[in-house]
Design a protein around this nucleic acid. Structure first.
Lengths: 175, 175
DNA sequence: AAACGATACTTAACATGTTAAATGTATCCG
DNA sequence: CGGATACATTTAACATGTTAAGTATCGTTT
């Protein structure tokens, strides 16, 4: 249906090359998001690294610091990590005694995680510089604008929420 | 609906837990960007996967399709990939005959890359569904809003552009 | 209670992200 | 010319992303 090949077309800014009809790549939404995030994270990584933490490990500690205990599955959702990643990281953090873990008595499959004293101390050591960096970003970009951006990002997330990832000729439309 | 426990503090929504003074984590900019990007990429991945491509491999093909030839370093910048990642992926794409590679005669260190006929055919096979997904996202979120979002993301990138990542007590502030 | 299916992780396997080090070339400079 | 430097790319090593399997436990059904 409707093969609209608007040949030498209107808004494509693609510079010659072999032509495959497509948006110009650097303007794609995924790239914009990736570049923006990278620009932000670049600010934080060195500071975290000095404390021996990766971005994801820091996410977990932050998530844990906000609550008493949490189950692994719930933590995965909170820290926005996939199960396998979380599993590996928890193993590591536990070995470093930054977190504590215990199986739920009423259900041996589940286990809860909480931050340890040592973990709290580490957080206390990292938080100041981390907050300072965040404050700096906010100042540069503008607090109001930042809030607006986050609002729009949330809305983007919501508009794609229900949408099932595109399979091919998949006919299982009802669950 | 979430039960808002309006503690009594200032603006911190942190629910009890061990207290380390810090923004609530789910509202941080990096998380917002990560979640938004993931929501978007989740739409594309299955389609790419069906064609045996990862997100990054697709980025490279797209970048290559827009130009005749390009040097590796320049490609890394365009596709927003680090050298080591690019190196591995190019090795793979070359083995699959999706790209072609040749060393620059005037400088044996450099090499140029270009997409092959086979690569172009693959792109032609993937592009339609990819564009359809993008169109769907645009429709759901709103074209104007999407443009605005990308504008704001670009500005965020720019406001952090000059800013050097935070080192510790690093005194090399000049040059 | 034994069988079956669902759940909560964990492992495995492969691809990429991230930093540091290695390799091979090119360039500069005495 | 020869040695020090800089540069382009690759390799190495470790951490995470992503999907598929595996393991243990729980619930339910018969």
């Amino acid at each position: 249906m409707a093969k609209k090949k608007s040949h030498d077309s209107s808004d494509d800014g693609a510079p010659a090359g072999r032509s495959v009809p497509m948006r110009e790549f650097s303007r794609s939404l995924p790239m914009s998001l990736l570049r923006a995030r990278e620009a932000v994270m670049r600010q934080f990584r060195p500071s975290l690294r000095q404390h021996g933490l990766t971005e994801q490990q820091w996410r977990i500690l932050r998530a844990l610091a906000a609550i008493e205990v949490i189950e692994v599955t719930e933590l995965a959702r909170t820290a926005f990590l996939l199960g396998p990643s979380l599993s590996r990281i928890l193993r590591d953090l536990e070995a470093r005694h930054l977190i504590e873990r215990r199986t739920v008595k009423t259900d041996q499959r589940r286990s809860t995680v909480s931050i340890s004293e040592k973990g709290l101390k580490l957080m206390a050591a990292v938080a100041p510089s981390s907050e300072a960096i965040y404050a700096d970003i906010t100042r540069r970009y503008g607090a109001r604008k930042l809030a607006e951006l986050q609002q729009m990002l949330g809305e983007l997330e919501n508009s794609l929420a229900g949408l099932r990832p595109q399979e091919e000729t998949d006919a299982t439309a009802d669950e």
